[in-house]
Simulated assay, not measured.
Amino acid sequence: MVERLALESTRLRLRNWHDEDLDPLVRLCADPEVMRYNPARWSRDDCAALMVRSRLHLLRNGFGLWALERKDNGAFIGYCGLVWSALPLPNAVAELRWAVACEHWGQGLVREAAQTALKCAFGALGLDEVVACVSQINEPGRQLLEGLGMRPEPATTFGHPDVSPEHPLHTQVLYRLRRDDWRQ
C-alpha cells in the first residue's frame, strides 16, 4: 500500500470517495447529456463498481479517480483523475479521465481538476507521460485536452471495443502529454 494523495485546487478538492457519493454519482452517470460521448449510461451497480475500483486504485497506487468536491459548498460534482490505462500501449501509462455534472460546466472546473491531476502526475508521481482517449466526435473533450497541452496522435485512432463499428462513438482518438511538454 502507498500513501494516498488528496489534492486541492483553487476551487476544488480531489478527494477519496465517500459512501454518500453514490447517489450523486448515479445521477451524474444517468444524465444523457453527461454521458453523451459514452457508449451507455451507467446503472447504480456500475457506479458502485466504479467507486470500489477507484478506492482500490487509490489504495494500491496513491492516485486514481478522485471524487470532485467544490470547496465553497462541499458539493460532489463528479470525478477526475488518473488510472493505469488498459489500452494496448507499449508501456504502462496513466490515463486521464473525468466526468462532471452539467450544472458545473462552463466554469473551468473540469480544466482546473484536470490540471491538478496532471500537476500531480508529473510532480509527486514522477510519471513520464499521461494519455487520454475521447471519441473522435467529442469536440468539447478534444478542446479540453488540447487546452491542457495534450496532442492527438492521429496514427493512433482505434475502435472502442464496446461499440459497433457503425456507431458514431466507435472511433477513438489517443492524446498524449509528456512531462517535458508539460513543463513548457
Rank of each mutant, 00 (worst) to 15 (best):
Glu166Phe: 01
His160Leu: 07
Pro24Asn: 04
Arg36Gly: 01
Ile137Arg: 10
Pro39Thr: 10
Gly147Ser: 11
Arg4His: 08
Glu166Thr: 00
Asp72Gln: 14
Asp19Phe: 10
Leu25Tyr: 05
Gly64Asn: 05
Phe158Val: 01
Val93Cys: 03
Trp98Glu: 03
Gly108Ala: 03
Gly149Ser: 06
Arg70His: 13
Leu144Asp: 01
Arg142Pro: 10
Leu68Gln: 10
Val100Tyr: 10
Cys47Met: 14
Pro39Val: 12
Trp98Asn: 05
Ala6Met: 11
Leu68Ser: 09
Thr157Gln: 11
Met150Asn: 03
Arg13Thr: 08
Leu56His: 08
Asp72Glu: 13
Ala49Gln: 15
Trp182Asp: 07
Pro168Asn: 06
Leu109Cys: 04
Glu139Leu: 15
Ala114Trp: 02
Asp46Val: 02
Leu14Cys: 04
Pro140Ile: 08
Leu5Cys: 14
Asn16Val: 13
Gln107Glu: 11
Ser164Met: 06
Asp162Asn: 14
Ala6Ile: 15
Leu12Ser: 03
Phe122Met: 07
His57Tyr: 06
Thr10Leu: 14
Ala94Asn: 06
Ser54Phe: 03
His160Gln: 09
Trp98Ala: 06
Leu12Tyr: 02
Arg97Gln: 12
Leu65Asn: 09
Val130Tyr: 00
Ala99His: 12
Ser43Tyr: 07
Arg41Ile: 15
Asn16Thr: 12
Leu12Phe: 07
Leu125Pro: 08
Arg176Lys: 07
His18Pro: 06
Arg15Met: 05
Leu148Val: 02
Leu25Lys: 01
Ser85Glu: 00
Pro88Ser: 09
Arg27Asp: 14
Arg44Ser: 07
Gly159Phe: 08
Pro152Glu: 03
Val130Ala: 04
Arg15Val: 01
Gly108Ser: 05
Pro32Phe: 01
Gln143Phe: 15
Arg27His: 15
Pro90Ala: 11
Asp72Thr: 11
Phe63Leu: 14
Leu127Lys: 01
